[in-house]
Design a protein around this nucleic acid. Structure first.
Lengths: 216, 216
DNA sequence: AGGAGAATAAAACATTTGTTTGAAACTGGC
DNA sequence: GCCAGTTTCAAACAAATGTTTTATTCTCCT
């Protein structure tokens, strides 16, 4: 099957990603997706069995593309410090969430992830094991390195730090409709990507330092 | 209308809050809500005009109860420091999001807020002006005080700090289904409320201090 | 060229779901 | 006790939507 005008299966996948991301699983109708993909409704069931099958395929594709195109070690030298590795981690996260080439920007596929966090679908479990858990382990390692190997902090410090860092990134992307209203000046968009990275990075470094010395 | 066995209008409101929170606007059906409230389906249209009207009423009630029962100055002395005011702010936020008496806990109404941030409904605008914007202004004031009046930081430092702090709280509540899986030890629940508060508070104090001295 | 299998299209089907209708039951005042 | 207004209920309606069916077209191999 040599692709010429973009094979229908991929057209469906692309349109579905956009529409599922924008409207959620239930609000997205297969007729809307079929229309956007310029495809007959029956083609969706033919290629993906049913609506859930299509959703699962979209989810897998979204994570695969996001994590392969923007790995957490993006643009990183071999000899980088742990602080720099944290910045790269955050930057990759924002790229996946906000850039057009990543998960398709706020209005696009990026919001699929936020929706899944809020109410995981059956298809999410596989994605969790394959992509999210290893990603989280990497972040924990970075934080541990920043705190210092001699400190040897336990998970009761590392995990909340990881959650706080990821939380900031996800929240920026997820709440962007509201942030745009409240703080028009610096909305979380592709253009402000580097500024957001820099801020969350510094804020998190400060947080990590404070937690390192705290007794909890 | 002296209430004896809880008037139907309130029964509907209570059931709707629970079900809208758990399943979202589209997934929640009038029939499910009517069943849970032990009410005829037509009663919903009679009392609230239509499904959207019911949703708007729920949203207004949720925010009203949350912000009146857990004000951001909860348990605060008159002479409290700005750091302590930040802790109270965060604690109130977690109470609203996680406690049973607040927005109804994770499984309950609390998730309505996360859903609204992700995809604001028409009814959200009123709530934004009435509750969220003033709340944000308060947080910005607190952060400004923490940085020090002589510093006199501009919104380009204050607003991102506010977003990062709120983001952590919202993310903990919103992503709790996934956090529970990844980090079973310390899931964001009502029992861990104080521990979460303490952590986010310290982390944020560290972040604010770092941002204060940064040039951006 | 021909035919088997894959892909696409149009229409119909079965459910679900928000809403309306018209009648019955209830409430408070005279 | 009766009546106007309010509230509740069962049933029906109309629109939307995921899926299936059946027929047609396309593709590639021999």
């Amino acid at each position: 099957m040599p692709e010429q005008t973009a094979p229908t299966k991929e057209r469906i996948l692309a349109a579905a990603g956009e529409i599922f991301g924008a409207k959620g699983f239930k609000d997205a109708t297969i007729r809307t997706i079929a229309l956007a993909a310029k495809v007959n409704v029956a083609a969706i069931n033919y290629h993906f069995r049913d609506k859930e099958g299509l959703y699962g395929a979209v989810l897998e594709e979204v994570f695969h593309i996001g994590f392969t195109r923007f790995p957490a070690t993006m643009d990183l030298e071999e000899s980088s410090s742990s602080e720099q590795r944290l910045r790269a981690f955050i930057r990759a996260m924002f790229h996946r969430l906000l850039s057009r080439e990543g998960w398709g920007g706020i209005a696009g596929r990026g919001r699929l992830i936020a929706r899944e966090l809020l109410a995981p679908s059956p298809a999410f479990e596989a994605v969790l094991d394959r992509y999210i858990k290893p990603h989280k382990d990497l972040l924990v390692t970075i934080i541990s390195d920043i705190m210092g190997t001699n400190t040897n902090p336990g998970p009761e410090k590392l995990m909340p730090c990881a959650i706080s860092i990821i939380g900031q990134c996800i929240y920026y992307a997820m709440a962007s409709p509201v942030i745009k209203i409240i703080y028009a000046g610096n909305a979380p968009t592709e253009e402000n990507l580097d500024r957001l990275t820099e801020f969350v990075w510094l804020f998190s470094l400060g947080g990590i330092a404070k937690i390192k010395d705290a007794t909890l």
